[in-house]
């Protein structure tokens, strides 16, 4: 009898411990590893948006910056998995290496979501959300086509990093639109690897060779720093509508871009919907980590165009205007 009651007591204790442990596990926040390719103002905006989205969902994040190194990014993702991350949200530095990173994570039972930069093979990841680089490139091309009208029009095209999707498609889709307009000549295509100093040198060279340059396409806001520096030096940094103004279109909606639009220095910026992207990435990561599925395997969100004429009304939709 005594033995029976002893067994019962031990069983009850074990059940209580198990129930407690289960409850604790259930309450424990899901850990999401966030792996960025680099840090600059746009990435800071994205990181803040992810932090806010994760906090809203009660998830914990571990952050690592690969600083433009595919080997470091692979290693950091492995470290985050070792630290107990149940999902990874990555902005890949190398879109091909990202496929392998995704395979490794998923084979370890960890959800893998890409943000902003699509991997070479979208099927390799659980979910991808990004801007729509093609829609943005097309919108920029259409703006230039409208600005050119039937006149001869010389355009400098700065390109981003050609090892990632945004860099490739922001350029390709712009070129496809411009190819339909024989009066528009792209005087130079400058691969910048997303580096402002290369944008500066490219603009300087193009302006020397073509002092009658009509337009500049900067597919990311940070490139504007180099562009402005060269134009100012050459006495060509004029506001929109002023005589001698060079048409400029950029993409991102970062604080730099918003300020440039407010100052009337660029004609149009396309603001990437950073908040929506981050929220979608966190939702998908949590869904997969807890055994569910995202509603769709990909989401491409086109940028919001805003100009000096409507910046005041559009500002609430532009993350960089709010941050600035």
């Amino acid at each position: 009898m005594k033995m029976k009651s002893g067994i019962c007591a031990v069983s009850a204790l074990a059940m209580a411990i198990f129930a407690g442990a289960y409850q604790a596990a259930a309450q424990e926040p899901v850990v999401i590893g966030v792996s960025f390719d680099k840090m600059e103002s746009f990435r800071e905006g994205e990181f803040n948006a992810i932090k806010a989205a994760a906090a809203a969902k009660g998830a914990k994040i571990i952050f690592q910056n690969a600083q433009e190194d595919a080997q470091r990014q692979a290693s950091q993702i492995e470290s985050m998995i070792a630290q107990g991350a149940k999902a990874i949200i990555a902005i890949p530095w190398d879109i091909e290496a990202a496929v392998n990173d995704a395979n490794n994570a998923r084979s370890a039972g960890v959800a893998y979501v890409t943000l902003d930069q699509a991997p070479a093979d979208l099927k390799a990841v659980d979910f991808h959300v990004g801007g729509d680089p093609c829609a943005d490139g097309t919108a920029a091309g259409e703006f230039f086509a409208k600005a050119a009208g039937d006149k001869p029009y010389k355009l400098l095209e700065l390109q981003g990093g050609l090892s990632n999707d945004n860099g490739i498609r922001r350029s390709k889709c712009l070129d496809e639109v411009l190819a339909k307009h024989s009066n528009i000549v792209i005087v130079a295509q400058v691969p910048t690897d997303w580096k402002p100093e290369k944008a500066l040198v490219g603009t300087e060279n193009a302006l020397q060779a073509h002092p009658d340059l009509n337009a500049i396409y900067s597919p990311w806001n940070i490139g504007l720093q180099g562009v402005f520096s060269v134009l100012e030096k050459a006495g060509k940094l004029k506001k929109v509508g002023e005589r001698g103004h060079i048409d400029i279109v950029s993409i991102d909606g970062a604080p730099t871009g918003c300020q440039a639009v407010r100052d009337g220095l660029i004609d149009m910026d396309l603001a990437t919907p950073v908040g929506d992207m981050a929220a979608a990435a966190v939702d998908a990561a949590l869904a997969v980590a807890t055994g569910g599925k995202p509603a769709a395997p990909t989401a491409f969100l086109p940028g919001t165009p805003y100009t000096p004429a409507d910046v005041a009304t559009q500002a609430p939709k532009v993350w960089g205007c709010a941050a600035g």
Partner: peptide
Amino acid sequence: RLGSGAPVLGDT
């Protein structure tokens, strides 16, 4: 290890 090669792979 990475499943890819890139011109910038040896930069660091």
